[in-house]
Design a protein around this nucleic acid. Sequence first.
DNA 1: CTGAAACTCTATATAATCAATAGGCTTTGA
DNA 2: TCAAAGCCTATTGATTATATAGAGTTTCAG
Lengths: 148, 148
Amino acid sequence: MLSKKCKYAIHALVHMAKEPEKKFLIKDISEACNIPKKFLEAILLELKRAGVLGSKQGKGGGYFLRSNPAEVNLADVVRMFDGAIALVSCATHKFYEPCAECEDEATCAIHHAFVEIRNSTVDLLSGDTIEGLAKRELKMKAKKKAKA
Amino acid sequence: MLSKKCKYAIHALVHMAKEPEKKFLIKDISEACNIPKKFLEAILLELKRAGVLGSKQGKGGGYFLRSNPAEVNLADVVRMFDGAIALVSCATHKFYEPCAECEDEATCAIHHAFVEIRNSTVDLLSGDTIEGLAKRELKMKAKKKAKA
DNA sequence: CTGAAACTCTATATAATCAATAGGCTTTGA
DNA sequence: TCAAAGCCTATTGATTATATAGAGTTTCAG
């Protein structure tokens, strides 16, 4: 399971990607996404340090998207907050560590099984950009409203 | 990432599935798979309570497979030790809980994205039986030995 | 019938991590 | 100059992960 931090980050980013030009106050994102304000503060700061967000201090300040929302995908965000995407450390690319208990990875069937799962998960996560998710969500909400 | 407990369980089960009729001592599995003995003890007990393994106490005792190894798959084992397979609680079948911060799951793009990922992961994990993994591993080891 | 082999069970220790909050500091603009 | 807003460090409390200790129980061999 993802950490709450990571899930909150995704919610915040998708929220911002709905109005990619807008400048957001921490407080407003916090209320819109139901994320504890102080916790969100730390999250946005990390996203800023990673270059995904920019910010402006002082009166009239706020956070805004710095990266192109079409190029920020869930694989990036998950790696940033929760580290490896794979279910075992020997099956990751970016955070590889051999399993202490495994004698020969090359002939370990478990290793091979989890590499496959990793690949499929990474493919799906990489395909989900915050722009795509934001647009999809706006459409779904519009459709639901039309029905009601 | 999987807990060590879960990974150890998988290793132990695949090891046993290589000789599905055999009775194993905790100590032997522990040494063969490089798993701390006392920790493994607790794991095997859980697997027994779940019906996957059987055991015989006393001298000449040991653990053995009770379930058909062709019917024990990684999805089962992961759920048993680590709970939900999905990355967010609102995307699971067996351990469903709504996300506290989410106002409307039906129109939440994040929810939909993670349901897809869950489905793909569950499909792959369900396809990996301990019998299949054990056979695959035996083949790989034989091939490697032939080359050397 | 006894003793060693082997699994069973409960409890505990330690460390790590997660989630959240506190509280001051700095920058900015009217 | 002061209030708005982000920046930063530290800390707390709860939970979970990993592992171990140690006593209890069952079984078989001789």
